[in-house]
Simulated assay, not measured.
Amino acid sequence: MKAIVFDEHGDIDVLAYRDIDTPELQPGEARIAVRACSLNYHDVFTRRGMPGIKVPLPGIPGCDAAGQVAELGPDVEGWSVGDRVLVDPVRWDRGTGKFSMIGDTLWGAYAEYVVVAASQLIPLPDDVSYEDASCLPVAYGTAHRMMITRGEVGPGDAVLILGASGGVGTSALLISKMRGAKVIAAAGTDEKCQRLADLGADETINYSEVDIARYCREQTGGLFGGGGYDVVVNFTGGDTWARSLRCVRQGGRVLTCGATAGYDPPTDLRFIWTAEMDIRGSNGWQRSDLDELLRMVQARELVPVIDSLVPLPDGVEAHRAMEERRFFGKIVITADAPV
């Protein structure tokens, strides 16, 4: 099969579009002809190598996939060749408790085919496109759990979202608006800020020109004068972390589900205790999140924000655009291998 492959960890030049042996099916597995694979910053971490996580080499990135069943392994029941499916990236071995994930510790979906456990398959309705479905698990699933299950965002909340122009950010914006919240969305260019406003953001901040903490004080007042936001969403970390703590109102909460700009930032404990804020972590998604998101997309209550559709042979350049943050929403790789 054709795939985007890396034989060693490193910079983007380790990625190559080439032939690689299609993995054999084991009992309980299915081979999926990938129709769409959306990109996530997790793919960059996989390519670079992550401390404590052993990625098999050669490796194939790509956590999010939608496609058609191309072949079924022994003992797989309830599915047929040609079925349209969304893949839950996570594979749990209920007997051993072992956790694995495609595009991470298992070969991913920057490829014509991906092999997954039958338990990872979710039926894909005919009226939900492969491209829309592929956006859901990592970004939208994570945002759904972070904003609703963990974050309890609701009507009247003022929500500041940092890094709002990416996959998790745009989905967090859409979900917050659906919940009746006021959204202040931060991005690094005026163009991205305008697109966030077009998506429904009530206010936008170009953080390359405006300090978010100063903007917060000017717009809402100081901490002891009732200022700040009910919810601050920060999944970037790095040098944004300490500044974002200054934007939380008394009794407010910080939501985080990642650290794309650095996982060990300096912090400022004074604001944590003074504001009596809650810091709530959210790790991934559950199947119920994906089921609800599929329902929302099918009902057109939610329309995933797609930056571009890129054919598999151009997948390395798509990965580069994501790493360099030259995108808005989700970049999706498409493929058309036979079933």
Rank of each mutant, 00 (worst) to 15 (best):
E8N: 08
G10V: 05
G10C: 06
L15Y: 11
P27R: 15
E29F: 01
C37A: 14
N40H: 04
F45R: 04
T46F: 00
G62E: 02
C63I: 10
G67Y: 07
G67T: 03
Q68V: 14
L72Y: 05
P89T: 03
V90S: 10
T96F: 05
K98M: 10
T105K: 05
W107E: 12
A109F: 02
Y110C: 05
V114S: 07
V115I: 15
L121V: 09
I122A: 03
P123M: 11
P125I: 03
P125N: 06
L136W: 05
A143V: 10
H144E: 12
R145E: 11
M147P: 00
T149E: 14
R150V: 15
G154H: 13
A158E: 14
G163W: 05
G167Y: 10
T170L: 06
L174A: 14
R179S: 12
A185C: 07
G188R: 10
R195T: 03
A197P: 00
G200E: 09
I205N: 02
I212R: 01
C216S: 15
C216T: 15
L223M: 12
F224T: 12
F224N: 12
G237L: 06
G262A: 08
D264V: 09
T267I: 13
R270Y: 14
E292H: 14
L294K: 04
R295F: 12
L302Q: 10
D307Y: 05
G315R: 07
V316P: 05
V316L: 13
E317I: 07
H319G: 00
E324M: 08
K330Q: 13
T334S: 08
A335S: 15
